[in-house]
């Protein structure tokens, strides 16, 4: 049974310039112990999905359609207080640039202990501290550094502390939004490895949000490629990378420099992403798509199964 099932989710923002459809008709499901990665350019709506799952959309944002079923409960129907009890306890999030979320005037272990106590008020200070010790061991922060202040930590250590905080209540699902963007490659690699280990160890479900296709490829079982507020391709990692179906996925992969392959194979995606206040009527990628036909401009594409657990939102397959 799926832990999380999202059906036809649409989210919009009221902005000064008009109504912005940030996410449109996104459906996916995530099983226990699996990880799912969302890849897309900035502004494609991937962070918005994460925020909606946490029930933390900004006041001008609104879920207009769809359901979010978490353990068979629709999160969108829950009251604020019920949602609060699920947030952090069952679903935790590692925010973008989370390292800056640590309060500089408190010791790191105190901060994590405080987070634990906030959700288990009955837990004594000493017990909470014991839990913190265990958590820090888990994420690889040495014991002698526990009582340091955040500024004494390197970027990677801060990120580890944040991961420890997210793990504090033993959630079932962790949403990681660009968790390693500001880190160096070596540290990033370590953090990703540790996340993978933790996920396996605790049978965690994870949603990974990143603009970097290689990071998602590194850690996720399933991958969703997002473009201009829509999910355009969805499938298992192997399927998506071995036989990418949507032209955007193909473009994304071939525009990424790797250590192997011919140098000349890097081809950038021409053009710019469409404006989401007045999105194009047909396929949203058609202006940048090398294989677009006239019908692509007018008819919105439909989901096509291209293989077992692999589908794409493109006209191409209809031929």
């Amino acid at each position: 049974m799926a832990l999380l099932e999202v059906e036809n989710l649409s989210i919009g923002y009221r902005t000064r310039k008009g109504y912005l459809q940030a996410v449109e008709g996104v459906s996916f499901c995530l099983e226990e112990g699996k990880s799912l990665g969302f890849v897309g350019e900035s502004g494609c709506g991937k962070t918005t999905i994460g925020m909606a799952l946490m029930g933390l959309l900004p006041p001008n944002g609104q879920v207009t359609k769809g359901r979010i079923l978490f353990e068979d409960k629709d999160l969108l129907q829950l009251s604020d207080s019920n949602m609060r009890s699920i947030r952090w306890q069952k679903i935790a999030m590692i925010f973008q640039a989370a390292m800056n979320a640590l309060n500089p005037v408190h010791r790191v272990d105190d901060q994590v202990a405080e987070a634990i106590q906030a959700h288990n008020p009955d837990l004594g200070k000493t017990n909470a501290m014991k839990q913190v010790e265990g958590l820090f061991q888990l994420v690889g922060i040495p014991e002698d550094r526990m009582r340091d202040y955040p500024h004494q930590y390197s970027g990677g250590m801060k990120q580890r502390a944040i991961i420890a905080m997210a793990l504090a209540c033993r959630p079932k699902l962790i949403i990681a939004d660009e968790p390693t963007t500001a880190l160096d490659v070596i540290v990033q690699d370590q953090i990703l490895k540790e996340t993978r280990n933790l996920q396996r160890e605790f049978n965690l479900s994870m949603i990974f949000i990143s603009h970097d296709i290689s990071i998602v490829a590194d850690v996720c079982h399933d991958i969703g490629i997002m473009y201009a507020g829509q999910l355009v391709e969805y499938g298992s990692r192997e399927e998506v990378f071995r036989s990418p179906c949507h032209p955007y996925t193909r473009a994304l992969i071939s525009s990424y420099p790797t250590l192997t392959g011919k140098k000349s194979q890097l081809t950038p995606i021409p053009g710019e992403t469409p404006n989401l206040i007045n999105p194009p009527a047909g396929c949203r990628f058609c202006d940048r798509c090398p294989g677009a036909r006239t019908s692509c401009k007018t008819e919105p594409p439909a989901w096509e199964e291209v293989g077992p657990c692999h589908s794409a939102l493109c006209h191409e397959r209809k031929l």
């Binding site: 070596i186 490829a217 590194d218 990378f241 790797t258 250590l259 392959g261």
Partner: peptide, 25 residues
């Protein structure tokens, strides 16, 4: 170590893993 740490995907070709890194931080 830098080459090891780079996330790899797609056709990995003949990239080796060196494992020369002892500690991350």
């Amino acid at each position: 170590a830098l080459i090891d740490a780079l996330p790899k995907f797609g056709d990995c070709g003949d990239i080796k893993h060196y494992g020369t890194l002892l500690r991350a931080d």
